[in-house]
Design a binder for these strands. Structure first.
Length: 563
RNA sequence: GCCCUUGUAGUUCAAUGGAUAGAACAGCGGACUUCUAAGCCGUCGAUGUAGGUUCGAUUCCUACCAGGGGCACCA
């Protein structure tokens, strides 16, 4: 439609003797009452031509109306408005056709698309072994899962990768802590093994402030691990088993799509040497204060990237480079990679992406860091090291308690929906100040509102199928209603979310969609007999239910049977 | 010090350079034995400051103010 309108306008400009390229746009006005499409062409041109924009717009409209009819049979009305906008109003047939399309698409929408072999890795969640799964990890998990779903619906072959933090000096710290103050057998028998491991991790940092040799001991322990020391490896493996059990339980509870690959950092342990070789071959490496680093050109304004410590053991960056090199070999040169990771790592990812360019691994745009802000207390940052964290379990329990006060049966699905929506409704870049009331919101702009509205629409359909009820008094409205217009925009919203890799556009859209439904059907009388308007309404409600379901699927929010 | 990022109603969030800045919560005021109250209707209320670019700026640019984050052996 948009292209059609653009074509018509270009034709008119030609007729008016304007030959130059004009960079006008055709778009949806923000307000439905300003039409379905709108163009600013008159405002762009008016200055150049020295004509009042409204007069020019009128002129263009007259020309438009003078064109042969074919090509814009679906346009009902063309109007000049505001400062010189030309607004196009579409007729009912157009929207009815769209609703029929939605009803037909039912079975093969989005998630069932085969994919056109555009492979993309979405790396998200990536919790650290033996650290708590707190609200901090929640964001990457929820947003990453949603982005993966959006990409799937946009015909990508998505590879969901959980890049576990199962390697690094932290394990040295943990091994030292277990040796000094813990007992692994007892931890394994405990009901809350992860909490005990975290306690030890926190204790390590407390003690390390008093005893400076502890940090060195931790580094030594990690070096042992890298050298495949038997005892160290045993402790490491047992910690991983404990953590994985915990993570799997949480993913299931959160309705996160199962990962395609779960390769921890340790998986890439033997793939790092190849990167060092590449760096040396390209002469990009340098020794500095005993460490092995990559330096960037001055105009990049990036600090050097450390690959190896002075004791020769590896750093995060080297493991990441090894990871991406391996992925390229495994999935092909065209593979795209998205890392959904906190914004505090923005600078780091700039370094990684730049380094991979220099190494010739990837080209511009192939590697993307999707950043999200952090959950914070109003007093400051959450930190595992300091022990001031909020466990995800506590949040889920509290959310279920609140949802359970209204309906015990649906409390789990509602609690998770509320939690997820609260995250997905906002631009992910900003920080979130932790607040119980906000995070567990089940009123107003909430996942619960969406679930509830979807359930209610479904329930109308069920009653209608039983031939008992129908919507009365509302005949077919003479004007196109907002609900129809919102339904039409769904694919564009998904496309926009995909382009910007921002699920929140879908979230806010769904709120508007649901409101427009409630606005129209929220206060309706029910009749017990059929009438001739039934098909219009039932199709509209069906299309609505279907779109809500698709939209909520993109956010990873389930719809209960009843509420 | 350098780099990144965020400032929108009392609060939590929207807004693809467009039209009267859109919701929700809280506040105030309503409707109603229903498919639906986890809802519906009405009302009050906002772009950090100062410039610039533009026909048009919450959006782009500059400076300032105020938060948050990063910057060498953590990840």
């Amino acid at each position: 439609m948009k292209e059609q309108i653009e074509k018509l306008i270009k034709e008119v400009l030609k007729n008016l003797g304007i030959e130059d390229e004009v960079s006008f746009v055709v778009e949806h006005p923000t307000d439905f009452k300003n039409g379905d499409y709108s163009t600013n062409v008159a405002m762009i041109l008016s200055k150049k031509m020295g004509i009042n924009p409204r007069d020019l717009a009128e002129k263009i409209v007259i020309e438009l109306k003078g064109l042969p009819k074919q090509g814009f049979g679906e346009i009902n009305k063309i109007e000049v408005a505001g400062a010189g906008f030309i607004n196009f109003y579409l007729g009912r047939e157009f929207f009815t056709e769209n609703i029929n399309k939605i009803l037909e698409e039912k079975e093969n929408w989005g998630k069932n698309k085969k994919g056109e072999n555009k492979k993309i890795i979405v790396e998200y969640s990536s919790p650290n072994i033996a650290k708590p799964f707190t609200i901090g990890h929640l964001r990457s998990t929820i947003i990453g899962d949603s982005i993966a779903r959006i990409l799937t619906s946009s015909s990508f072959k998505v590879i969901r990768d959980n890049h576990l933090g199962d390697w690094g000096t932290q394990f040295g710290k943990l091994i030292v802590a277990i040796k000094n103050w813990g007992n692994l057998e007892e931890i394994e028998k405990s009901e809350t093994p992860i909490k005990l491991l975290v306690d030890l991790y926190v204790k390590f940092h407390d003690e390390a402030e008093k005893d400076k040799t502890l940090e060195d001991k931790a580094r030594a322990s990690f070096l042992k691990l890298e050298n495949k020391d038997k005892d160290a490896t045993d402790v490491w493996k047992r910690c991983i088993d404990l953590s994985m059990k915990e993570f799997e339980r949480i993913y299931k509870k959160l309705n996160i799509t199962p990962f395609d690959t779960i390769y921890g950092e340790s998986f890439y342990e033997d793939k790092m040497k190849a990167v060092i070789d590449d760096v040396k071959k390209k002469n990009l490496g340098k020794e500095s204060e005993g460490a092995f680093i990559i330096e960037f050109s001055e105009e990049k304004k990036l600090p050097p990237l450390l690959l190896l410590k002075k004791d020769g053991s590896s750093l995060y960056a080297l493991r990441d480079l090894a990871t991406d090199k391996w992925r390229k070999n495994e999935y092909g040169n065209d593979i795209r990679i998205i890392n959904e990771v906190g914004s505090e790592q923005k600078g780091y990812f700039k370094q990684i992406i730049e380094a991979e360019n220099m190494l010739g691994y990837f080209t511009e745009g192939q590697r993307i860091h999707v950043a999200h802000g952090l959950y914070r207390f109003s007093e400051g940052k959450m930190s595992t090291r300091k022990g001031n964290v909020i466990w995800l379990d506590d949040i889920i329990n509290e959310a279920e308690k609140r949802a359970g006060e209204i309906n015990e049966e649906t409390k789990e699905i509602v609690a998770i929906g509320a939690l997820k929506f609260n995250d997905l409704k906002r631009d992910s870049l900003g920080d979130i100040i932790f607040n119980w009331e906000e995070i567990l919101n089940i009123k107003g702009d909430s996942g619960t509102y969406l679930q509830y509205t979807a359930v209610r629409a479904n329930s109308i359909l069920n009653k209608a199928d039983m031939n008992r009820s129908i919507i009365d008094e509302i005949m077919i409205p003479s004007e196109i209603i907002d609900l129809e217009k919102y339904l039409y925009q769904f694919p564009e919203i998904v496309e926009y979310s995909y382009q910007s890799l921002q699920p929140h556009h879908i979230a806010t859209y769904l709120i508007e969609l649901a409101s427009s439904f409630n606005n129209f059907y929220g206060n309706t009388q029910i009749l017990v007999e059929e009438n001739k308007y039934m098909t219009y309404h039932l199709n509209l409600i069906k299309a609505f239910t279907q779109t809500m379901k698709n939209g909520l699927w993109l956010l990873g929010i389930e719809v209960p049977e009843k509420m």
